[in-house]
Design a protein around this nucleic acid. Structure first.
Lengths: 126, 126
DNA sequence: GAATGAACAGGTTGTTCATAA
DNA sequence: TTATGAACAACCTGTTCATTC
């Protein structure tokens, strides 16, 4: 009955989703924030590199972190509210610990990707 | 009537396809080769980085280069043939020139990606 | 307009099957 | 088994639409 089978990564580059999750964790360590606020920060950070993430990419990453049990949602109705709600995110009880584990993985993954790119420069532009 | 609309890249990482095309060009500069032979070479090169491209990924990249007018196919029936055919690839007349242009683009793209990864290391593990 | 969210569409990539010697 | 190729399925990502203030 339509067993959905997993697909293995062949280990090329890290995925945008993972990359954004890493940044979201680090931003949350600094201070609580809500969606589009975060996106603005990221957009500024990545502008020099010609990377402009979409809002849906960011939301997907955010949902992932909630599903991973790292963050939880906190809806806030701002005072003098002009807006219905803002959704702030912050760490769950053991979220910080889990986040550390995730970050450690990503560190290795980024190092690996840099190695691969470095090798490509050597091999193709020797 | 179902105008198929292009999707723009938001400029995250370079794609596997482009990465492989770059390697294929460089390998072809060194010597003619056929599909699975190339894959073996690539597999060896990338093994230290945990990247193992599939044969279909490589074929796709190869077809792309043919469509770009950079390479052309040359079917060869090997002497004492145990196999029906091997498909060797080599540069078209202006293929080498086009290849240089492509390589220049990829050089910039790889530099950009390295910058992005470097920034991520600084921002998240600084 | 700012903000969140979901649906949809397009493209890339990994797995599998087909064919041939 | 080696080699090429194609079909298919899963996934990722970008665009668009819906909704609320």
């Amino acid at each position: 009955m339509a067993e959905k089978q997993k697909r293995e990564s062949r280990g090329f580059m890290l995925k945008q989703r993972a990359f954004l999750k890493l940044y979201l964790i680090t931003l949350m360590e600094k201070k609580k924030a809500y969606g589009l606020q975060i996106l603005d920060t990221l957009t500024e950070t990545f502008k020099p590199f010609g990377y402009q993430p979409t809002h849906s990419a960011m939301y997907e990453a955010l949902y992932d972190l909630v599903e991973d049990g790292i963050l939880h949602r906190q809806e806030i109705v701002p005072p003098h509210d002009r807006f219905k709600k803002l959704v702030y995110y912050q760490f769950t009880d053991d979220g910080a610990d889990r986040a550390e584990i995730y970050k450690k993985q990503l560190k290795e993954e980024i190092d690996r990707c840099q190695g691969l790119l470095q090798q490509a420069l050597k091999d193709n532009f020797g």
